[in-house]
Design a protein around this nucleic acid. Structure first.
Lengths: 151, 151
DNA sequence: TTGGCTGCAAATATTTTGCACTGGC
DNA sequence: GCCAGTGCAAAATATTTGCAGCCAA
C-alpha cells in the first residue's frame, strides 16, 4: 500500500492489456481497492463506490471483484460469517492478523510460525486468541486425474 | 482420530456435565464427528445422520454444530464458497491441507512456516498452490473497550 | 457501431429463526 | 411433568445470474 495511485494504474493497465473496458464504476472499485489498507468487504466497497458514483449496483461490485480475482489482481479472504474481504494491494497469499472484535485486518510481516504468536503479541499488542493456517494444493490422486482432463 | 468411540464419549460427557440432553439426533451427529477424519461439511453430516435417524432435520444438524462449537468441542473451518467444514476430533486451531480439486482436508503435523511448503510437498505429494494463514485475536483498542463492556 | 458492461430483479445457496409439538431426564 | 430439543417452514444473508438497455473504445 505504498503507492495507491501506482497500484491503481497497474490494475487499469492490466484491464486494457486484456482488452477489457475501463468504466467509471470499475475505476471507482479499483480505486478503493488500491487505496485501502484494511481489506474492505463487499458492503464497504459498495458504500464507498456509491459516494463517487451513486448509480453503481451491488452486482457490478461483485462482478468486478470476480473479474479481478480471475486476473489475479485481487486476493479474496474468505469468511463465511462476516463476509469475504478483499486485498487489491497484495493479491497473493500472505498472513493476516484479524481482530475478532472490530474485524480489522492488517498484514504482519514474519517468517516462521514457531515464534509468530509471540512476535505478533509483542509487535502489535494484539491478544492472539486463535489462528488459521491453511495450505491449498492438489493431492497426488487429483494430480494424476488432472493430467488427462484439464477442466 | 485414534479412538473415535472414546472421543464420542468425551463429547457426550461434556453435554451431560452441562445438563444438556443426549437425544438420538445429537448422538448421531456427534458419532459422525467423532468417526470422521476428513472434516465433513454440513451436507455430508446431514446425509449420514439420516441413514441412522431418517427424521432428523437440517436445522437440528446446524443447531448441534453451533452448540458444540460453543462448548469448544468442534472446530469450524470456514469456506465461503464450498461451505464450512467441521472437525470434532481436534477442536483446536491447527494447520489444514486442503485439496482444491476434491476438497479433501487432512491434518499435517509440522512446526514452522518456513519449511512447511517443502515439507508438505515431500511428505504428502501434494502440489502446494496456495496457503491461508490467519491469526485471530483482539487488537489493543478493542482490548481496552472490552474491559468495561463485556458483550 | 457494437459487444462488453451496467443495473435491476429474480434466482440460488446457505444458515438462522420462530414456534408448536415432543420426548429425555 | 417440565422444559430443552426437534422439525417444519419462513426469514435472513450472501452471492450469482438473466436480460434489456447503455456506453467505452
Amino acid at each position: 500500500m505504498t503507492h495507491p495511485e501506482h497500484r491503481l494504474q497497474e490494475m487499469v493497465q492490466r484491464l486494457k492489456k486484456k482488452g477489457l473496458r475501463i468504466t467509471p464504476q470499475r475505476l471507482a472499485v479499483l480505486g478503493i481497492l488500491a487505496r485501502s489498507a484494511d481489506h474492505p468487504g463487499v458492503d464497504r466497497i459498495y458504500e464507498q463506490v456509491k459516494t463517487d458514483f451513486p448509480t453503481t449496483s451491488l452486482a457490478t461490485v461483485y462482478k468486478t471483484l470476480v473479474l479481478m480475482k480471475e486476473l489475479g489482481e485481487v486476493l479474496e479472504i474468505e469468511f463465511s460469517d462476516t463476509g469475504n474481504r478483499y486485498d487489491g494491494n497484495k493479491p497473493y497469499p500472505h498472513p493476516h492478523l484479524i481482530c475478532t472484535e472490530c474485524h480489522k485486518i492488517i498484514d504482519p510481516d514474519l517468517d516462521t510460525l514457531a515464534h509468530m504468536t509471540r512476535e505478533l503479541t509483542r509487535d502489535t499488542g494484539f491478544k492472539i486468541v486463535s489462528h488459521r493456517l491453511d495450505f491449498f494444493g492438489i493431492c497426488p490422486e487429483c494430480q494424476k486425474k488432472g493430467v488427462a482432463s484439464e477442466k
